[in-house]
Computed example of a mutant assay.
Amino acid sequence: MATHKSVETKYMEQRAELFRGLTNLDRRSFLKVSAAAMGAAAGLASPFSFTPVTVAQEPGEGGSAGGESFRFAYISDSHLYEKQINDRFARALMRAVDDVNNLDPQPDFVFYGGDLAQLGQVKELELGAQILSNLKAPLKIMVGEHDWYLDMGEKWQDLYGESTYSFDHKGVHFVVLNSVVEKDFWTARGMSPMERMKTVAGLDNGLQSPFTVGDKQREWLEKDLAGLADDAKVIVFSHSPLYKLYKPLNFWTDDADEVQAILQRFKHVVVIHGHTHQILLNRIGNIYFHGMLATAWPWPYAPEGMPELTVEMTRPDPFNSTDGCGDGEVAVHPDALVDMVYNLWNRNPITVKSTYLGSWGKMDVPPAPNRPSY
Rank of each mutant, 00 (worst) to 15 (best):
V7A: 11
K10A: 03
Y11V: 13
Q14S: 12
Q14Y: 07
R15P: 05
A16L: 12
F19C: 07
F19T: 10
F19H: 00
T23S: 13
S29Q: 02
F30K: 10
K32F: 13
K32P: 08
S34Q: 04
S34N: 06
S34W: 11
A35C: 07
G39V: 04
A41V: 04
A41Q: 08
A42S: 04
F48E: 05
T51F: 13
T51H: 02
T51G: 14
T51C: 13
P52T: 05
V53T: 13
A56Y: 12
P59R: 06
G60N: 03
E61L: 00
G62V: 03
G63W: 10
G66D: 13
G66E: 05
G67A: 00
S69E: 05
F70K: 02
A73R: 05
A73I: 00
Y74F: 09
I75H: 08
D77K: 07
H79W: 01
H79N: 11
Y81N: 14
K83F: 06
N86G: 09
R91F: 09
A96V: 04
N101K: 09
L103M: 14
L103F: 13
D104Y: 10
P107F: 00
D108Q: 11
F109Q: 10
G114H: 03
A117G: 02
A117P: 02
A117R: 01
G120W: 09
L127R: 08
A129W: 08
Q130T: 13
L132R: 13
S133F: 09
L135G: 01
K136F: 14
L139F: 11
I141T: 11
H146W: 07
W148L: 13
G153H: 06
D158V: 03
S163G: 14
T164E: 14
K170D: 10
V172T: 06
H173I: 05
V175L: 02
V176H: 09
V180A: 06
V180S: 06
F185Q: 00
W186K: 05
T187N: 12
A188Q: 12
R189K: 14
M191Y: 04
R196K: 10
M197Y: 02
T199S: 12
G206F: 07
L207R: 12
D215P: 01
L221D: 09
L221Y: 02
K223N: 10
L225V: 05
G227C: 08
L228K: 12
V234D: 00
F237C: 08
K247Y: 06
K247Q: 15
L249W: 15
D255T: 02
E258T: 01
E258Y: 01
R265Q: 08
K267G: 11
V269D: 04
V270M: 11
V270G: 11
V271N: 14
G274F: 07
H275T: 05
L281D: 10
L281W: 10
H290E: 04
L293S: 11
L293D: 03
A294T: 06
W299A: 15
A302N: 12
E304P: 07
E304N: 14
P307R: 01
L309S: 06
T310G: 02
E312R: 15
M313T: 07
E329G: 12
E329N: 14
E329P: 10
E329S: 14
V330S: 11
P334Q: 09
V341W: 12
Y342K: 03
N346S: 09
N348T: 15
T351C: 15
V352R: 08
K353M: 09
S359N: 06
W360G: 13
W360M: 15
K362E: 15
D364T: 03
P366R: 11
P367N: 02
P367F: 06
P367Q: 09
S373Y: 07
